[in-house]
Amino acid sequence: MTEYKLVVVGAGGVGKSALTIQLIQNHFVDEYDPTIEDSYRKQVVIDGETCLLDILDTAGQEEYSAMRDQYMRTGEGFLCVFAINNTKSFEDIHHYREQIKRVKDSEDVPMVLVGNKCDLPSRTVDTKQAQDLARSYGIPFIETSAKTRQGVDDAFYTLVREIRKHKEKMSKDGKKKKKKSKTKCVIM
């Protein structure tokens, strides 16, 4: 069974824990209790493949930012979460993405942009803004509501699919490099 290491990042209060708990335990946590770091595991079937999701729910508070490099190193894919009623959390996505790329030393890291709290009427981040940002990053965008469960499975499952595509691409690139290195030079 394939294991996928997913990391949920975003500013404090955007609903990272609520999304994760909704996926794992099928219930909505409405009281806000700032996370330092929590880890969850769940076995699911995605596109006919049974897999184990190892999900790291991270601290959004700035005082825990020193811990970010460590979990970013171990993560295979990242859910970059903002709240649709919090423009600052949307603007912060850029910083999370840049930090992930720096730590992973790669421009090509599996990510999904997630606009959470889409059940709320007080939207300050337009869907088109988020779609445009995701398009500019070359990553999928999904709106979710941890409260109603809308888009929750889709967000995590899409990230797994992005990781699969990335692994497939990397193995193809690896095979191309191996083929090239088999060419021999004969000096007579």
Rank of each mutant, 00 (worst) to 15 (best):
G138Y: 03
G138E: 09
V103F: 15
A59W: 00
Q61V: 09
K5Y: 00
Q150L: 09
K172H: 08
H166S: 08
H166D: 10
S39E: 02
F90G: 07
E37H: 04
N26Y: 04
I142P: 02
Y137K: 06
L56R: 01
V112D: 01
Y71W: 07
D108V: 05
V160C: 14
D105T: 04
E162I: 09
K167S: 05
T35D: 00
S181R: 12
T74K: 07
E107H: 04
R164N: 15
D92R: 15
T20S: 09
R73C: 11
N116L: 15
S106E: 11
A59Y: 01
M111R: 00
F141W: 02
K5E: 10
K178P: 12
K128T: 05
F141N: 07
N26G: 13
S106F: 08
Y40M: 00
G48C: 04
I100Y: 13
I100K: 01
D173V: 04
G174P: 04
K178G: 08
E3T: 04
V29K: 01
A134V: 10
D33P: 00
D173R: 14
D154Y: 04
V112M: 13
F78V: 04
D173P: 04
A83N: 15
I163G: 01
K16H: 00
K42H: 12
Y96A: 13
A130E: 10
E107V: 08
H166I: 09
A66F: 12
D153L: 08
F156H: 13
P110S: 02
A66N: 14
E98W: 01
Q99S: 15
D105P: 10
R123P: 08
M188Q: 10
G12M: 12
I46S: 12
T74I: 05
P110W: 00
S17L: 01
Q129C: 14
L113H: 01
D69N: 10
K128I: 07
D173M: 05
C80T: 03
T144M: 04
S17R: 00
S136L: 10
S136D: 15
K178C: 05
Q25D: 15
S17I: 00
V45C: 12
S106I: 09
R149V: 06
L6A: 06
M111V: 09
L52Y: 12
V81A: 05
I46H: 09
K88R: 13
E31W: 03
E98G: 03
A18Q: 05
I84F: 12
R149L: 07
Q61T: 12
G60Q: 01
V45I: 07
G75T: 08
A130D: 11
R41Q: 02
V7T: 12
R135K: 13
T74V: 08
R102L: 08
T183E: 14
D108K: 11
C51P: 13
S181V: 11
D173A: 11
D38C: 00
D57G: 00
K169Y: 15
L79M: 08
A134N: 10
S17H: 00
D119I: 11
K176I: 11
I187V: 07
G15W: 01
V14E: 15
L133H: 14
V8P: 02
D126G: 06
V45Q: 15
L56Y: 04
A155P: 08
D108I: 04
V7A: 04
G13H: 14
R102Y: 04
L159I: 08
N86D: 13
V160R: 10
D47H: 11
V160D: 02
Y137I: 13
Q131C: 06
E107I: 08
Q25P: 00
A130K: 07
G115L: 09
D153K: 06
S65Y: 09
I24Q: 12
Q25I: 15
K165H: 11
C80G: 03
K167G: 04
M72Y: 09
D126E: 06
G77Q: 02
D108C: 08
G77Y: 04
Q99H: 09
V81N: 04
E63M: 03
Q150K: 07
V152K: 15
F156W: 08
K42V: 10
K167L: 06
Y40H: 00
H27C: 15
D54C: 01
D38T: 00
Q131W: 06
A18R: 01
S65A: 07
F90L: 11
D30S: 12
D119G: 12
L159H: 02
Y4Q: 14
I187L: 11
R149C: 07
E107A: 07
V9W: 11
K184I: 03
Q150A: 13
S106K: 10
V45T: 13
E162D: 07
A130G: 05
C118S: 09
E107Q: 04
V125E: 09
Y137R: 05
E63T: 05
L79T: 02
L79E: 00
G15P: 04
K182T: 01
E37Y: 15
K117A: 14
A134L: 11
F141I: 04
Q129E: 11
M111I: 07
D108R: 07
S181G: 05
S17T: 03
T50G: 08
Q131S: 10
Q70A: 13
I46G: 11
I100L: 14
V29E: 12
I142F: 07
I21C: 03
Q22K: 12
A130C: 12
I55H: 02
T50P: 13
S65G: 08
T2E: 13
K165I: 09
K176R: 05
D126M: 06
K165W: 10
T127L: 05
L53P: 06
I142L: 05
T2G: 08
Y64M: 09
R102H: 14
T127S: 07
Y4T: 14
S136F: 09
P34W: 01
Y64F: 08
L56A: 08
E49N: 13
K169R: 08
R102F: 04
L52E: 15
G174Q: 03
T158N: 05
P34Y: 02
V114Y: 04
D132E: 06
G12D: 08
R123K: 11
V8R: 00
E3N: 04
V103Q: 09
S122P: 09
E162W: 11
M170I: 04
K182N: 07
D38I: 00
T50Y: 12
Q129S: 10
R135G: 11
A155V: 11
R164G: 10
Q70L: 05
C118D: 10
T124A: 08
D33T: 02
L6S: 05
M188H: 15
L133C: 04
V81I: 07
F28P: 01
D54Q: 01
V109N: 06
N85D: 06
A155W: 15
S106M: 14
H27G: 13
K180I: 08
E162H: 10
L159S: 01
A155I: 12
I24L: 15
E76L: 04
H166T: 11
D57F: 00
E98T: 03
E37F: 03
I93Y: 11
A66H: 12
F82W: 06
R161A: 02
Q22C: 04
T127M: 05
H166R: 05
T2P: 12
V8C: 05
S39F: 02
K169S: 13
L133I: 06
T127V: 06
G75K: 04
L19P: 00
R97A: 10
E63D: 12
R68A: 13
K177H: 06
D119S: 14
R41K: 03
Q131M: 09
H95M: 04
K167I: 05
F156P: 02
D69I: 03
L113E: 01
K117V: 15
D108N: 05
A134E: 15
D38Q: 00
K172M: 07
Y40I: 00
T124N: 09
M188F: 11
